[in-house]
Design a protein around this nucleic acid. Structure first.
Lengths: 203, 203
DNA sequence: GATAGAAGTGGACACATCGTCCACTTACCG
DNA sequence: CGGTAAGTGGACGATGTGTCCACTTCTATC
């Protein structure tokens, strides 16, 4: 995208051609490996070997597996974040006159996340395993969004409730349900019950 | 407890005195280590060394860290399960005449689980990390219980909803919230909102 | 008590993964 | 071209895993 606009104080040190080539090889190999089997079992060694480069080269750019998965996931998550902020209702906020109810927006968000998980669980699992989930930038964004909706619905302690409303979107649970034969539609339907029950009909 | 009642087909091979002694040393050492720092970072080596026994001896009885944590957690989880099945309302089912509403029972279950987590998160984290959670017997029990309540409340697809209602009890989330300064009372309050919103007031 | 055999013990071993380090190679700029 | 900084790759030490087996200790039996 950006080529050489003099943005900050120093001239951006261009990426060398061989480095760029290897970066592409790494991402392609990682995507393949994550999709092939259990993403949490993929090792840095596996990726280096599949990409046809040395371990040292891999570690130069990516400190761990999660950072590689995040690089692959990033654009998809950003696209959803954009839709939440500026997209059409009920996902986006809508016009001042026709703002969708918080419960509607939460249900729409749930549905969009189910869609994203259905396409990219393998990447999410590669990126955030267990407790690491809560330290990602993406989680902070979802949390902010849901807390905002909970506050708009007049719920007490919206931040705590936001964490609890995000919990059923944990990638481990999603995979467990999908492997148990549960369809994305059923998952989304359950989440819709949660959304309307929790943020609908103000007491 | 049991000495030599002829229960099944074979005479139960008694546990030797030294073995029993070592088992106790292992459990005591493990409890200490889990409580001391990050339970997910405790290794089999650590436990063997802290218990003053060899690795081979440790592996003889426990195949991995999770099985040790589960042995320590077992009695506490059983006690709660007993209360769910036969305890006083609203945790237990109550008499036929005065059965508590499903939402009440779910909220009571949530509160009891928060209490259990507050006392034993370190053990739960040692026992079930990430996806392993869904394969434990305890999880199967909680799931059955919550699905039963969801069905009693007339909710569609109670099994799917049960998984989603159990997600906010994930030990990683609990620890994250507690370390973020959230009190058990606030966690329980958020869960109560979830319980009453989702299983309360039949549509 | 002595003793035979089973149950239990502990440390060495082979293997996997991690993350670092550094001598060598390659691309880019002038 | 040639200098130089960025990039490369494999060797290395550390840590953890799970297995194996020669040795020790317990217990039932006489």
């Amino acid at each position: 995208m950006t080529t050489d606009l003099p943005l900050a104080d120093g001239p951006p040190p261009r990426e060398r051609a061989d480095a760029a080539r290897n970066r592409a090889k790494v991402l392609a190999a990682a995507e393949r490996l994550f999709a092939a089997g259990d993403p949490t079992a993929v090792t840095m060694d596996d990726i280096a070997r599949a990409a046809g480069i040395g371990r040292g080269t891999l570690y130069r750019r990516y400190p761990d597996r999660a950072s590689i998965a995040r690089a692959l996931l990033d654009e998809h998550e950003r696209a959803l974040q954009e839709r939440l902020l500026r997209g059409d209702p009920p996902l986006g906020p809508g016009d001042a006159g026709a703002a969708p109810a918080p419960a509607e927006r939460l249900a729409a968000f749930y549905a969009a996340m189910v869609e994203l998980l259905e396409t990219h669980v393998h990447l999410v699992l590669g990126a955030e395993t267990g407790a690491a989930r809560y330290r990602t930038g993406a989680y902070a964004f979802w949390r902010l969004h849901v807390a905002h909706l909970a506050r708009a619905a007049g719920r007490p302690d919206p931040e705590v409730l936001a964490d609890q409303l995000l919990a059923p979107l944990a990638p481990e649970l999603f995979r467990h349900q999908r492997e148990g034969g549960v369809t994305p539609a059923r998952i989304a339907a359950g989440l819709a019950v949660l959304a309307h029950g929790t943020l609908g009909r103000p007491d």
